[in-house]
Design a protein around this nucleic acid. Structure first.
Length: 470
DNA sequence: CTATGGCACGGATT
DNA sequence: AATCCGTGCCATAG
């Protein structure tokens, strides 16, 4: 019934137009963004209230329904192909288990402020008191990637201290937890990480040189030029590149453990909070998928009944304002519901169709288009597009992947390609690979193989080494 | 001559 | 309507 309202083909009445427009606007927000938006509205609109706290009695998490949350309630009979879906109206608890004092506290701080104080706490003990101000100032000028936005000289000038002193503070900051945080550039952040890493782990030779002198080459996968530049073998460069993308993070402020392989400088999407987490019960691949959808304020936001009542009694000067507040509130609540149900339906469908992919990895992705899914769910294509855009989910292996990966047309082929190359005896040419893929049922042109290789950062055949020729 | 990468075109997707 | 993606053609490197 509600879905039909999302069809633009249906002619819409004024109310539904607004409804539609706002629902659309809400759907494309991530959980984190939505939370902020609702908070803002909540602050200035007295007609809204949060009817709080239904807790799951076992894990103490806030949960939209009464009773045990599904994760704590394994007794209900599960069917493998029926994913368990539940909606969490708050998503901040996944970062830290809440303790009592925090629970009723203010809204969670912005990630940025969080980072600053987090770092400051770590380094404060090691700082002379008079340097703390400097540190605080530096930390307040981090961008969302955890990089320093302002030049050091400016800090020095601001506090009338020698640059060297500022530098030593920065150095301290850089070695605090998100290692490399506070660096002026991704480059330097990575150098610091490399340095720290090298104390306990072996790191490839010349990795520092590669970062220092050829970062742009490295990020563009131009390994040949890079090899020439620092005078080493191409396969060494390849090793370095792999090591770097596996172990270093050019943007220390971004807390993601996701898959960053596909290039670290091509502005990777920011994965902070996933919009959903998919797990299995007891990590057993034979159990149904448990999908936890983070939909801020779902089920706990409502129109304040007292307000509704009051508006009838106090029908005087401010009625206009009150009325608009009320209708805004109603609209928001409605749209929020709409958004939640749409996303839940989307996730349920994905969990069913892509179960194998979620559990077993890339090569099991069933290619699908947003359009086809839209048809199945009986919503407009753009609804799916918006719902998918900019969102990310955490899958059971711990990776955070963009939701759009579920609609990657070529992922299957690319993983097949990767496998072929990994198992190859001697370097295969693109056309040879094309034929091999054909045998596996993937029909791709030779030119396309080349493109996929590039996407995966794999060198052309004449530059690949057969196993070990160091 | 073979293998690749760049450019650009057209169809599919969003 | 805008964008993405696979592909063909051609120049270039080896």
């Amino acid at each position: 019934m509600l879905q039909t309202q999302l069809r633009p083909s249906t002619q819409l009445k004024p109310l539904t137009t607004a409804h539609l427009a706002q629902t659309m606007a809400l759907i494309e927000l991530t959980a984190a963004e939505l939370e902020q938006k609702v908070q803002a509205e909540l602050a200035k609109n007295p007609a809204l209230e949060v009817k709080d706290t239904r807790h799951c009695p076992v894990c103490k998490r806030q949960y939209a329904e009464n009773g045990l949350c599904p994760r704590c309630h394994p007794k209900v009979s599960h069917q493998l192909d029926q994913p368990i879906i539940f909606v969490s109206p708050r998503h901040d608890f996944i970062r830290t288990p809440r303790n009592e004092s925090e629970t009723q506290d203010r809204e969670l701080q912005l990630a940025k402020e969080d980072l600053s104080t987090y770092v400051l706490k770590q380094i404060a003990p090691e700082l002379p008191v008079e340097d703390r101000q400097i540190a605080a100032y530096i930390l307040s000028n981090l961008d969302e990637d955890g990089l320093l936005e302002i030049p050091l000289v400016e800090v020095a000038r601001y506090y009338h201290v020698p640059i060297s002193r500022v530098e030593s503070v920065v150095e301290l900051i850089q070695h605090a937890d998100p290692i490399g945080v506070g660096s002026p550039s991704p480059q330097e952040a990575m150098l610091v990480q490399l340095d720290v890493l090298s104390e306990h782990h072996p790191v490839p030779l010349h990795a520092d040189a590669a970062i220092r002198e050829g970062l742009d080459l490295l990020s563009r996968h131009q390994y040949v030029e890079l090899a020439r530049l620092i005078g080493i073998q191409v396969h060494q460069v390849e090793k370095i590149a792999r090591f770097i993308s596996d172990n270093l993070n050019p943007f220390p402020g971004r807390a993601f453990w996701g898959d960053i392989r596909s290039g670290f400088s091509d502005n990777p999407p920011v994965y902070t909070q996933p919009d959903a987490i998919i797990t299995t019960i007891d990590n057993s691949p034979e159990s149904p998928l448990v999908v936890e959808v983070f939909s801020p304020y779902a089920g706990i936001l409502r129109v304040n009944p007292l307000f509704r009542q009051a508006i009838e009694e106090v029908s005087k000067e401010n009625t206009e304002q009150w009325k608009s507040d009320l209708s805004r509130a109603e609209l928001l609540v409605k749209c929020l519901q709409q958004r939640t149900t749409t996303i839940v339906r989307l996730m349920r469908r994905l969990a069913v169709i892509q179960r194998e992919f979620i559990l077993r990895g890339d090569q099991f992705l069933r290619p699908q288009t947003r359009a086809s899914l839209a048809q199945e769910l009986d919503v407009h294509e753009s609804t799916i597009s918006r719902a998918v855009a900019n969102k990310s989910v955490q899958i059971p292996n711990g990776h955070i992947i963009p939701l759009s990966k579920f609609f990657d047309r070529s992922l299957q082929v690319r993983t097949a390609l990767k496998q072929i190359i990994q198992e190859e005896k001697s370097p295969l040419s693109d056309s040879a690979i094309s034929e091999l893929l054909e045998e596996q049922g993937y029909s791709v042109a030779r030119r396309t193989v080349a493109k996929y290789r590039a996407m995966e950062g794999i060198l052309p055949s004449h530059l690949r080494q057969s196993p070990e020729t160091v």
